[in-house]
Design a protein around this nucleic acid. Structure first.
Lengths: 344, 344
DNA sequence: TGGTAGATTGTTAGCGATAACGACAAGACG
DNA sequence: CGTCTTGTCGTTATCGCTAACAATCTACCA
């Protein structure tokens, strides 16, 4: 009850405090702390020690206002709870860690209104760039992005027109290629299992490409099953059970993501269904998890890590002036991984 | 090439632009946009339409500087790539979505230096609160947190002294309870499989509690296996194969997380090992994934969602003045879920 | 020894918003 | 009919920092 050791300064520290403590002007302190402009070694040290002993933390709000430069990059993605976006984030962080840029993440839950809110909120902090998932946005969102006057990279998808730059894969093509691979392997009775998500445009595009290419091979999707919410692995099981019950003649199941595919795979193995002879299976995304399954599920790697990296590179390059123009279009090619469940 | 429709204003819009467009003072525009103070309905509408047609996005940097109020909450966590923190984030977002607070996430990769950097960076934006994983921080980090003068909630763990508030479970206790449950089930030869992470204090505490309680039962950990990096599911398989090869007499395997536990479970089932009779298994965390496995892995739910919610509630409450004091200590009780792999 | 380039440090004026207070009009009231 | 509220705005002074320029102080050369 009796510690007069240090009265914690109720008023937060400012440059002035450091300036007074070290006997130089605020400007000089500012220069030292930002490593900008010439400062003699002696005063530099004086300032640095003063700042450290005081425990000074610069106020970036004031700094940003004065210099109209913000080292934040807005990253807007649907969610973090499926395995796809964490990996994108890893790629982004990896690249941004070598710059003075900092990612700031916002979630939309696949809701356009939420996206609009989050975007508005983030833009009001005047970030140096925006990385946003998808090519489909509300009109208001597009207008904001356009008016912001900063680099915008739309990621994941390249089937459409970007506002500025885009990095991703063609989900239509991914669907098509999978369809062709399935047809080539001789499967005829194909079922589709996916999410009940009218707002997941990429899943939709994959499905469109899939059916389109199947049609060219004279095939069609014979049955479908949808889910929403819950444990994806469990849902995969349940949906597989349901669809096979309803359509016993199916010999291939295409899942809209690896997680439900893995559930389906486990279910089939348990039921003694011969995979891939009796029934073939395939998912989408190329999540790391698949490596640990009894059989390696066929999938298509979406290159999520590389998407994150490339998007960050564009933002970083444009922020530091290395890159002049905008409008980059980077299409990565999804890689088919047949695994053990797509061969005959 | 000939669209003189709208020259996109090179200079970003400010309050002044809106003020001029609507014929009122900047102050009034500010009042309207923030819904604060009395403004007549007619001018309110004038301002609102002006702002909308111009596409004005307020500059929170300036606003924050002037009002010294920031609606940001810094959330500092190790990573997003295991299944534990996404769920914590969900809990945080859930609560914060009902306030005007916004989470801003930073990652430390379990590195104290990285934590320090991220913390410094975030504090320099003067957030309204900090939610940070763990009770162990570098001296500098603690000093910063202390000096920041804002609510700080340390989450996940309660085995230690918080800087301010804390919300979590006792990992020592979680380890102890699991040990007791295992002993009670009659298992005698116990193996431990975990991450090679000297910096994961919570895993360490669980292990300490585990061995301590085992000792009281006259038991001890007979063999151990560690890993780092890679696909956790796959690593779980490999480690299980390795430890059983080396110590065939083991009749129980305790995994430091559910993911490697799931890998081990799949491995055992494949090898025809009778679970839980021949060998019992248990993990930790209670991830949703487990529901989809052939057998439900025994685990201990860490209440991650609730941790996130509670932490956010404390921050929100203190930010809006609903809660006066600091130093809250919320200990949630981990729930043992025996599943199908911890019974005899 | 005066002059000048180069290195170092200080001064002044905002950045775009908000807090706090002041001003003014339209009723309310005795 | 003058004074007092209330309801609506406007003015002024920062917030903490940085850009741009000015001022000093060296060192060195003709």
């Amino acid at each position: 009850m009796n510690d007069e050791v240090e009265i914690p300064p109720r008023r937060p520290l400012t440059l002035r405090d450091v300036s007074e403590a070290s006997g130089v002007s605020e400007m000089t302190v500012s220069r030292v702390l930002r490593n900008r402009g010439d400062v003699s070694e002696s005063t530099r040290e004086k300032v640095l020690t003063a700042a450290k002993t005081l425990g000074y933390v610069p106020n970036k709000i004031a700094g940003a206002l004065a210099s109209s430069r913000v080292n934040l990059v807005a990253v807007i993605i649907p969610s973090m709870s499926n395995m796809v976006f964490p990996e994108v984030m890893t790629g982004i962080s990896e690249v941004l860690d070598n710059t003075d840029l900092q990612p700031v993440v916002g979630f939309t839950n696949y809701l356009p209104e939420k996206e609009e809110q989050v975007l508005f909120e983030m833009l009001s902090w005047r970030p140096s760039g925006v990385i946003i998932a998808g090519l489909e946005h509300s009109e208001a969102s597009e207008a904001m992005l356009l008016a912001a006057g900063i680099p915008v990279v739309e990621i994941m998808d390249v089937d459409g027109e970007p506002i500025d730059a885009m990095v991703g894969i063609s989900h239509r093509r991914a669907g098509r290629e999978m369809a062709r691979a399935i047809a080539k392997s001789g499967y005829k009775n194909i079922g589709f299992l996916g999410t009940k998500m009218p707002l997941d445009h990429r899943a939709r595009k994959r499905f469109e490409g899939f059916t389109e290419a199947l049609a060219k091979e004279g095939l069609e999707v014979m049955d479908r099953e949808f889910y929403s919410g819950g444990s994806a692995l469990l849902k995969g099981r349940e949906m597989t059970a349901a669809i096979l019950e309803r359509s016993p003649s199916l010999d291939f199941l295409y899942y809209s993501n690896d997680m439900i595919g893995a559930g389906g795979l486990l279910y089939c193995l348990e039921k003694g269904i011969k995979v891939p002879e009796q029934i073939g299976l395939a998912g989408f995304n190329g999540v790391e998890l698949l490596a640990g399954l009894p059989l390696k599920l066929a999938t298509m790697d979406a290159g999520r890590l590389e998407i994150g990296r490339e998007a960050a590179r564009i933002i970083a390059g444009r922020a530091d002036g290395t890159i002049e123009e905008g409008g980059q279009r980077v299409e990565l090619t999804p890689k088919l991984e047949p695994g053990d469940t797509l061969v005959r």
